[in-house]
Simulated assay, not measured.
Amino acid sequence: MARPRNRLPKSDPDSGIEDVPLLILEWLGEQGISALIRFDAQRPRTPWTFTAAGGALLHPIRNDAASADKCLNNGLALMRKQGINVPF
């Protein structure tokens, strides 16, 4: 039987995907902060971007990095400088 088109596969809880970045994004949303982590293949040196704005942030932040880990960690450090302490 053919697989239905335009349907996402069911998530696999044992897939090994880290939950922490998703928890961080969810927590930020609960604080009224819009946030995004993105990969752009057109920028091979720094393809990862983290942005956040709104809520209690005084100024929007943006961080570009070579890895997702560095990008998110640097973005959270920029948020701490504005008084946002993410509890993860």
Results as ranks from 00 to 15, higher is better:
residue 42 Q to M: 12
residue 9 P to S: 10
residue 32 G to E: 02
residue 5 R to I: 12
residue 70 K to A: 15
residue 55 G to N: 07
residue 25 L to Y: 03
residue 52 A to Q: 04
residue 49 T to Y: 02
residue 82 Q to F: 06
residue 39 F to K: 01
residue 16 G to S: 06
residue 27 W to E: 00
residue 54 G to P: 05
residue 79 M to S: 06
residue 72 L to S: 00
residue 54 G to A: 01
residue 25 L to S: 14
residue 32 G to F: 03
residue 67 S to W: 00
residue 67 S to Q: 06
residue 8 L to A: 14
residue 11 S to D: 08
residue 4 P to I: 09
residue 56 A to K: 11
residue 69 D to Q: 14
residue 46 T to N: 15
residue 70 K to E: 15
residue 82 Q to V: 07
residue 68 A to V: 03
residue 29 G to L: 04
residue 22 L to E: 11
residue 51 T to D: 13
residue 84 I to F: 07
residue 78 L to N: 10
residue 35 A to K: 01
residue 55 G to T: 02
residue 54 G to T: 02
residue 71 C to S: 00
residue 47 P to L: 01
residue 1 M to T: 09
residue 62 R to G: 13
residue 58 L to T: 14
residue 48 W to T: 01
residue 83 G to L: 06
residue 9 P to E: 10
residue 28 L to Y: 00
residue 82 Q to Y: 05
residue 6 N to L: 13
residue 83 G to W: 05
residue 29 G to I: 03
residue 39 F to T: 00
residue 34 S to K: 07
residue 7 R to K: 11
residue 53 A to T: 09
residue 13 P to D: 11
residue 51 T to V: 15
residue 13 P to W: 07
residue 12 D to P: 09
residue 22 L to T: 10
residue 47 P to I: 00
residue 17 I to P: 08
residue 76 L to Q: 08
residue 76 L to K: 09
residue 81 K to C: 09
residue 73 N to F: 10
residue 22 L to M: 12
residue 81 K to F: 08
residue 54 G to K: 04
residue 78 L to H: 09
residue 77 A to P: 06
residue 15 S to T: 09
residue 38 R to S: 12
residue 53 A to C: 10
residue 47 P to H: 02
residue 39 F to N: 05
residue 65 A to R: 04
residue 76 L to Y: 05
residue 11 S to G: 13
residue 21 P to Q: 01
residue 37 I to E: 03
residue 45 R to G: 13
residue 43 R to H: 08
residue 64 D to M: 05
residue 19 D to N: 12
residue 52 A to E: 05
residue 59 H to Q: 14
residue 64 D to R: 09
residue 54 G to I: 02
residue 16 G to D: 06
residue 7 R to V: 15
residue 16 G to N: 09
residue 11 S to V: 12
residue 27 W to F: 04
residue 84 I to H: 04
residue 59 H to G: 08
residue 69 D to E: 15
residue 1 M to G: 14
residue 70 K to L: 15
residue 56 A to G: 08
residue 30 E to L: 13
residue 39 F to G: 02
residue 79 M to V: 05
residue 66 A to S: 11
residue 52 A to V: 02
residue 61 I to W: 05
residue 42 Q to I: 04
residue 47 P to V: 02
residue 83 G to I: 04
residue 34 S to V: 10
residue 73 N to H: 13
residue 82 Q to T: 05
residue 27 W to V: 00
residue 49 T to P: 03
residue 73 N to Y: 10
residue 24 I to H: 03
residue 22 L to N: 10
residue 66 A to Y: 03
residue 86 V to M: 01
residue 13 P to C: 10
residue 83 G to C: 07
residue 25 L to N: 05
residue 41 A to H: 08
